[in-house]
Nucleic acid binder design. Structure first.
Length: 493
RNA sequence: CGGGGUGUAGCGCAGUCCGGUUAGCGCACCUGGUUUGGGACCAGGGGGUCGAAGGUUCGAAUCCUUUCACCCCGACCA
């Protein structure tokens, strides 16, 4: 299958074809019969679960609690915030009826026209509206604040074109929704969460990201400010990987959520929301994979170490297993997830290729000749390098190797991003450079008009105004008007 | 919704232009044996309303009409 994959890479006239094949071949997901939806298979879901676990822990460390709000939102709720509904109206699935009946004309079942809902229900594209409709009842005094809620849920956005993990009609995500007594506190939480996402991306996904602010044009519908983390994929395209929105008092006003402050004055509540989705899976796949398949960062790999025995008969297997079992125990004691694959319905060569395709970071191979020498063959997925190590103390060696791999793939991705990031001065230069892919740092006059012109001319979008970027002012590459700092443009997913 | 393409076994495809034995190949699957340090080999076996409907014909996967589905490139978007 590895060779198949290589051929596909060469043959594929685009990266997305290669990506799709990889998702299927690595057993992560497959397309469902329903347009634009996806079945996440056990191996893919195991990776998502690891992401969930770590994110959930990180959220809770900041005082966030989990809750759950309904899937269906009354249409009137969605329409309360004008910009918000405008942003999502075009891609909503709508529930109009609550019953089916047998077709009087014969075969099959039809929607019962008698069973029309008085008010249509929207399958949530995001939950701000239903949550703020609920918070209204929860909040009366400054003593009720802050509310720091997160929910793990599915949402639905009826997208025109879909791609597994990157953009599906239904996707899994977490959405945090906080209510605060002051603008400052809400802004601080908004920034805190984008920093948390960046930490997660870098420490767990081994994916370097750029933190920044979205332009007015790219902002979340209904937000006063949107923070983003932007990652670069191996083909040089940008992927928005997480967002944190400062919603100001927009939703509080739309849903009439007020509290009495310490001065006994009524005041609208300050809000923010933040989320990451299964899109992170797509980001993970596209950040590190190679022609042999997935490359998973050890911190998220469901199987961190696989051990493959090589034997000629049952007796030999038994002998090898007796050497391997203590290693398995030691690895587990060190908190390493290990799979000892002694299945005899697959030959070793098949197992090697298969675990590479699935991105397992470290492979140990033990055969009769290793037992004799007291060694083990050790292969690291990121570089595909093989070496021999003494059986004695192998667990400790593996533990440090996992950390080394984690650091190495991060560095590799960072190096790639840096090589693919250029600075330009003129619009002509920009048009040339954008064709080569990657991030382009350029001056921009801050207007939506200019931003849209650039998109029209080059298909590049303004990814973000970087938070940690160079803040030297300059002149807009298009209009020559003053620019406060360089911003990042790229083609994106 | 525009432009292009594809529907034939679980998957990937050939056959369609130019109608003609029982629709074929690779992978996968099943049985038996030999194998096992990089995706094993040999032998045997099972599996198809050729996307759907209608038409032309002695005869249709192949020609005609209609229709449906999916994929890719745009517009939209996390």
């Amino acid at each position: 299958m590895a060779t198949e994959l290589k051929e596909l890479t060469k043959r594929a006239d685009n990266y997305s074809q290669w990506y799709n094949d990889l998702v299927v071949k690595a057993d992560l997901a497959e397309q469902s019969p329903v347009r634009g939806c996806m079945v996440i298979k056990p191996y893919g879901y195991a990776i998502w679960e690891k992401m969930q676990r770590e994110l959930d822990r990180m959220f809770k460390e900041t005082g966030v609690q989990n809750a759950y709000f309904p899937l269906l939102i009354p249409k009137s709720f969605l329409c309360r915030e004008a910009e918000h509904v405008e942003g999502f109206a075009k891609e909503c699935a709508v529930v109009t009826h609550y019953r089916l009946k047998n077709d009087p004309n014969g075969s099959g079942v039809i929607v019962d026209p008698e069973a029309r809902l008085e008010e249509e229900l929207i399958v949530r594209p995001t939950s701000e509206t239903i949550i703020w409709g609920t918070y209204r009842n929860w909040i009366h005094s400054y003593r009720d604040l802050p509310i720091l809620c997160n929910q793990w849920a599915n949402v639905m956005r009826w997208e025109m074109r879909t791609r597994m993990f990157l953009r599906t009609s239904e996707f899994l995500w977490q959405e945090g929704h906080c209510a605060h007594a002051t603008a400052e506190e809400s802004e601080a939480r908004t920034v805190q969460m984008i920093n948390l996402y960046a930490d997660f991306a870098e420490k767990y996904m081994a994916m370097p990201v750029i933190k920044g602010v979205k332009s007015a044009n790219e902002r979340f519908a209904g937000a006063v400010n949107t923070y983003t983390i932007e990652a670069m994929m191996q083909d040089g395209k940008a992927l928005q990987s997480g967002t944190s929105h400062n919603l100001g008092q927009n939703f509080a006003k739309a849903f009439d959520v007020t509290f009495v402050n310490k001065d006994n004055q009524p005041e609208y509540v300050w809000a923010n929301s933040w989320g990451v989705s299964t899109r992170l899976m797509g980001a993970l796949i596209m950040s590190h994979s190679d022609d042999n398949g997935l490359v998973l960062p050890p911190h998220l790999a469901p199987i961190q170490v696989v051990i493959v025995p090589i034997y000629k008969n049952a007796e030999q297997l038994k002998q090898i297993s007796s050497h391997i079992e203590p290693i398995v125990i030691k690895l587990k004691e060190l908190g390493i997830s290990v799979k000892y694959d002694d299945a005899d319905n697959r030959r070793p060569g098949f197992k090697f290729a298969d675990y590479e395709l699935k991105g397992v970071p470290v492979r140990l191979v033990v055969g009769a000749r290793d037992i004799e020498k007291g060694t083990v063959e050790i292969m690291r997925r990121d570089t595909l390098e093989k070496s021999e190590a003494p059986l004695e103390g192998i667990a400790g060696h593996v533990k440090s190797l996992l950390e080394e791999i984690q650091a190495n793939i991060y560095q590799k991705a960072l190096k790639h991003r840096e090589e693919m990031t250029r600075t330009v001065e003129t619009y002509d230069e920009f048009k040339q450079e954008i064709e080569k892919g990657g991030f382009i740092l350029a001056h921009w006059d801050g207007t939506t008009e200019t931003e849209l012109k650039i998109k029209e001319d080059t298909k590049a979008t303004l990814r973000c105004i970087p938070l940690d970027g160079d803040t030297t002012p300059g002149k807009c590459m298009v209009t020559g008007r003053p620019s406060r700092q360089r911003v990042i443009f790229a083609r994106n997913y």
